[in-house]
């Protein structure tokens, strides 16, 4: 029963009184160590809210998040976040962006030389060693997101949280980065919680897909276990019957049972 990361009956209501809006109702999720979980749902269903609550950037109204036996109440380096728009600090170089995270996280535990080495190592892992001294405005969107991933990984988090990490990228770059994330995750065995609206991305990367109902008062509608062996090959998956079955499952959930409220209105 004790899972690595537990989201225990979380409710979230924004505002108070008559203007209050209930965003999440009774979200309950248990994640094992090393699992890759995707949260998928239509926009406005509160999937990012779930992620922000786990990150500690938002507080729950009721319920709790427990990570490795400890309750989460504020942000911390054990839950690093890859933001959708990369959120690199534009006045720092690639190296310094990662260094800010590394120096802060490992101040007491690693020597300066070890930290420097570790920064280079993580940037090498995401294939950004060639641009150490470039500033974010000098590199492409995909490269920025790589650095964002390196910054998050460099903190050696217990859970890596990714908020639509590839949403702002073109399809080719996105595919490439998805492969990179798959490779890194299988190397490091990170526990990952990823918010996405891309069905292929969810099926390709995840152990389980958490499908959310539409807001307001969204909750987990269904959890789909993706029983495909890892590592998964993008090309092989295209012809894989199981893969397509899972894909169709998610599509059915999103487009039959929980239609986009906006398209219904239109």
């Amino acid at each position: 029963m004790t899972s690595y990361l537990s989201i225990e009956h979380v409710h979230k209501t924004f505002g108070e009184g008559p203007t209050a809006s209930e965003v999440l109702r009774d979200v309950d999720l248990h994640v094992d160590r090393g699992e890759f979980i995707s949260i998928i749902g239509h926009s406005g269903c509160g999937k990012s809210t779930v992620l922000n609550i786990v990150a500690g950037l938002l507080e729950t109204s009721t319920g709790a998040v427990i990570l490795d036996g400890k309750e989460v109440s504020k942000p911390g380096p054990d839950r690093s976040v890859v933001f959708q728009n990369h959120s690199l600090l534009p006045w720092l170089t690639v190296r310094d962006n990662v260094a800010l995270a590394v120096d802060k996280t490992f101040k007491g535990t690693k020597s300066a030389a070890e930290r420097r080495e570790w920064i280079l190592q993580t940037l090498d892992m995401v294939g950004m060693s060639h641009a150490l001294d470039k500033r974010p405005d000098e590199i492409s969107g995909g490269m920025k997101q790589r650095v964002g991933i390196a910054r998050a990984l460099a903190m050696e988090p217990k859970v890596l949280l990714m908020d639509e990490p590839f949403g702002a990228l073109d399809a080719l770059t996105r595919a490439h980065l998805q492969d990179e994330v798959m490779r890194i995750q299988s190397e490091l065995g990170n526990t990952v919680l990823m918010v996405t609206h891309d069905v292929d991305e969810a099926v390709l990367l995840s152990n389980r897909i958490v499908m959310m109902t539409n807001g307001p008062a969204a909750t987990i509608g269904e959890i789909l276990e993706i029983d495909l062996p890892k590592p998964r090959e993008r090309l092989a998956m295209a012809d894989n019957a199981d893969y397509n079955h899972y894909r169709a499952e998610v599509l059915r959930f999103l487009h039959e049972r929980h239609k986009n409220p906006e398209s219904e209105a239109a």
Partner: peptide, 22 residues
Amino acid sequence: SAILDRNMTFGAGRERPAAAET
């Protein structure tokens, strides 16, 4: 076709954006 297209062009497009940028 969406995912297939991605796969087809995947190898070719590998470092394209990066190279163009630099």
